[in-house]
Structure formats: structure tokens, C-alpha cells
Design a binder for these strands. Structure first.
Lengths: 160, 160
DNA sequence: CAACATAGTGAATGATATACACAATGAAGA
DNA sequence: TCTTCATTGTGTATATCATTCACTATGTTG
């Protein structure tokens, strides 16, 4: 994985480029930590994402998972195969639609998902728990503005 | 790819969890936009990372690329194979070490890297260019504190 | 020169992701 | 009802990224 966070001597220490560099590094390190946590639970990133979705939405069809994760249905089939092999989920028939399959967490899967939930809150606390209410509010305000701009950039980038 | 950015109704709108959720969304959208830009140049994420490294460090041995990207040497071999096949880089003998190979950008590769550089600055401007100096400074200050904590968390997570 | 370390690659494998084709089922209309 | 069309999931094939292990060629050191 990439790990290149150059801080060019020629760049000012406060600049859009500096902010982008920091955010990239943040993103990289967060992913590394979350991957490590998921691996400790016997999960990969993609599989953990499905677990997270099931944990928050309950039993879900593979089609719905495909929509939620924005990946192809075929990909979901493979990920659910792996999760089923690890006894994290089971496939059950859909009560009304015989084409569809409901994926649901096993007891073991539910326990794993609960650990993920706990880890999520701990992680949030470790990263942002030290901030004062005012500082956190200011940070979120700036972040929301950036996110809004980013969403329009992405929409244009993927739409065009 | 994951695309789950739940904003739980039960969570306060200003909280560590809210911040983590926003940062995750930011990270996801940034990756999507950058992937799209790289694809437009005929590159994937991993290949673009090598291009970026070569652009900023000049001709580099595969071993050094392996260290910089923190991936196995074998992986670098494959990525350089692909970049060589696309005429982005050439392998040249190392002047003093006959075991080693210097990977360097072709003209086409250098032009592509220059486009990446331009895109990077544009992207930074689009995301953060609207912020006042004070707001940017505050944002960076908070971010640096978060990064520092994250680094220790990651070090512990990967060291243990 | 012997012993060890380093640089790169072949072979095998795993995880993620896609496209295409297809069977089974559902839904809507004639 | 029966035909038509859409939807759900999966088999097959392929691409990319990434790893481990084994190996050759070369450098380095005692």
C-alpha cells in the first residue's frame, strides 16, 4: 500500500497541499489500524464491511448488499461464500421471494460485529476524545464544508 | 468498496463518532476521485503510487520502491512489469550494482507524472482553497494532534 | 576464497473486483 | 393462463494487487 506523505520543503506549512497531505496520511493510517483490528477478528476489509452492514441493517439480501456496498452482485456472492465458510453468516431463504437469499449473522458473527462496534467507539475516542467541544465543533464545521465540495467534485468526476 | 457512512440518529451530531464517520467518508470519496483521475491516465492506484515516487525521487531501484511503498519486492516486480508494458517506465542497469535495477520514467511517464502533480494541486485547491488562513490553520492544528495520536495507536497496534 | 547478505524473479496462492452468460423466479399485460 | 420482461444469484473467465517460498546472480566481509 502506498505510504508516501511527502512534505515538500518548498511548500508552506499551512496550505491546501499541506491539508491534503495530512488528510491522506490520516486516511492511510486509519485504514492500516482498522485492517489490523479486522484481521484480529478473522476478517478482511471487504468482509468486515458486509458484517458492519448486516450488524446495522439486520438480515439483508445479497442484492441489497450489492447496492449498499456499490459492488457487483457477483462480488457479494464470493464475499458471502467466505463469510459463510468462516461461520460468520448463514444464507437463509427469503420468506416471499424464492429468487432472493437473506444473509444473516450467526451467533459468532453477531459477537464479532459487537466487537467491531466496540472497537469503533474506542477508536473514535482515541482519535477525537481529547478535543474540547469547541475544537471538535470547529473541526467538524470545516470538515463538513470540505465534504460538501468533495461530493460535488466526485459527482462531476464520476458523472462526466 | 465500502460506502457505509451511517449517521445514527442516536448519536450526537458533535461527537468523536461523528468526526470519525466524517473522516471515513472523506477518505472514501477522496480515494474514489483519485482512482478516477488515475484511471483517466491509464493507471491504477498501486501503479500511480510508483509513478508518484519516481516523479519525486528520480530513478529508483526496485528494492527502494519496495521499502518506500512497504510492499514486498515481488510485488514491485509485477507493478514495474505493468508500467513497463504501458511505456510509463523503463528498467535500466544500475551503474555500480549489477544485481540492482534502476526504474526510471519514460518521456510519456514523465508527462503522466506531471499531470498527476497538476491534478494534486488542483484537488488540494478544490477541497481546501476556500478556507481562510485562520480556518486552515485551526484545521491543520487539530488534524496534527489527531495524527499524532493515531500514529501511537497504529504503532501499538502493529507492534503488539 | 568462504560465508553471508542483498536484488530481483519464477511459481503458487489468496483476496478483491469485474464482465458476460445463464437458470430460476417474479411481475405485468394481453 | 400464457407470454414477455425484469430481477436474483451464480458459473466461468479474467485482471489487479499482494503475499510466501525457492532460487539465481551478485555484492560484501572476514
Amino acid at each position: 500500500m502506498n505510504d508516501i506523505h511527502n512534505e515538500e520543503a518548498s511548500e508552506e506549512s499551512v496550505s491546501p497541499e499541506a491539508a491534503l497531505g495530512r488528510v491522506m496520511e490520516l486516511s492511510f493510517l486509519m485504514a492500516a489500524d482498522m485492517d489490523a483490528g479486522q484481521a484480529k477478528l478473522g476478517l478482511t476489509r471487504a468482509r468486515a464491511t458486509i458484517m458492519w452492514q448486516l450488524h446495522h441493517s439486520g438480515p439483508t439480501t445479497q442484492r441489497a448488499l450489492s447496492d449498499a456496498l456499490k459492488v457487483t452482485p457477483r462480488n457479494i456472492t464470493g464475499l458471502v461464500d467466505a463469510l459463510e465458510g468462516g461461520n460468520f453468516v448463514v444464507r437463509t431463504p427469503h420468506p416471499t421471494d424464492r429468487r432472493a437469499i437473506l444473509v444473516k449473522l450467526t451467533d459468532h458473527g453477531a459477537q464479532t460485529a459487537a466487537s467491531m462496534e466496540t472497537g469503533w467507539h474506542e477508536f473514535a475516542g482515541q482519535l477525537f476524545g481529547h478535543l474540547s467541544g469547541a475544537e471538535l465543533e470547529a473541526f467538524l464545521g470545516t470538515l463538513d464544508g470540505v465534504l460538501e465540495r468533495l461530493r460535488t467534485v466526485v459527482a462531476r468526476s464520476l458523472g462526466a
